[in-house]
Write a protein that binds this DNA or RNA. Structure first.
Length: 175
DNA sequence: CGTATTTGACCTGCGC
DNA sequence: GCGCAGGTCAAATACG
């Protein structure tokens, strides 16, 4: 298990009329402060993350050694701290060729759209058993960039959004 | 008119 | 073998 630090830019409004936001205030949100708190810390145990006690890692011991993590670095000021794991060989041919690693992080956000530099196109929505909230499936629409992600709201705290990336997540724009 | 989104259907894996 | 749940496809629709 390894931990990575990655800078993200939250583009919650996505600047569409679905999330109308004055241009000047939008710029203020993006560049200065976005109305969310990054509190993601999802532990992968092989192919399963230990999220049975979200509160413990959101505000508890997981960040107790670094409570400032929610306030420093990141998208113009915040840091993203998440866990990554490589998936083992799966029998499914279709997944085996694309799924290299899986990254998940949890974000306290009003919105679900995280603009990490890629263009995401939604290709599916599904109600999941353990959550009253639907899970959305996105695929990167950048040519040749085969990455998928799942976005769902936390079942305990609807204010939190859980984003799971599958595939190569080191977009050229990061470097 | 081209592109993105929605949404029901379909496919596959897994547990019983 | 069957049913359930998760994941994906694709036609229809909406939007710029």
């Amino acid at each position: 298990m390894c931990t990575m630090i990655l800078s993200f830019r939250i583009n919650g409004a996505k600047m569409t009329d679905k999330n109308p936001r004055p241009a000047d205030s939008a710029d203020n949100y993006v560049t200065n402060q976005w109305p969310l708190e990054l509190s993601e810390h999802l532990n992968f145990d092989d192919d399963q993350w230990l999220d049975d006690d979200p509160d413990s890692f959101v505000s508890g011991h997981a960040f107790s050694h670094n409570n400032q993590a929610n306030e420093v670095g990141g998208f113009g000021g915040s840091g993203t701290h998440f866990e990554e794991s490589s998936s083992r060989d799966v029998g499914n041919e279709r997944e085996k060729k694309e799924v290299r690693d899986r990254v998940a992080f949890k974000t306290k956000s009003e919105v679900e759209i995280l603009d990490d530099g890629s263009k995401w196109r939604k290709y599916g929505k599904k109600m999941v058993k353990n959550s009253p909230n639907p899970r959305n499936y996105y695929r990167c629409s950048v040519d040749g960039w085969q990455v998928k992600k799942r976005v769902e709201r936390d079942k305990d705290d609807p204010r939190f959004v859980i984003t799971t990336y599958e595939g190569i997540h080191t977009h050229p724009s990061y470097s």
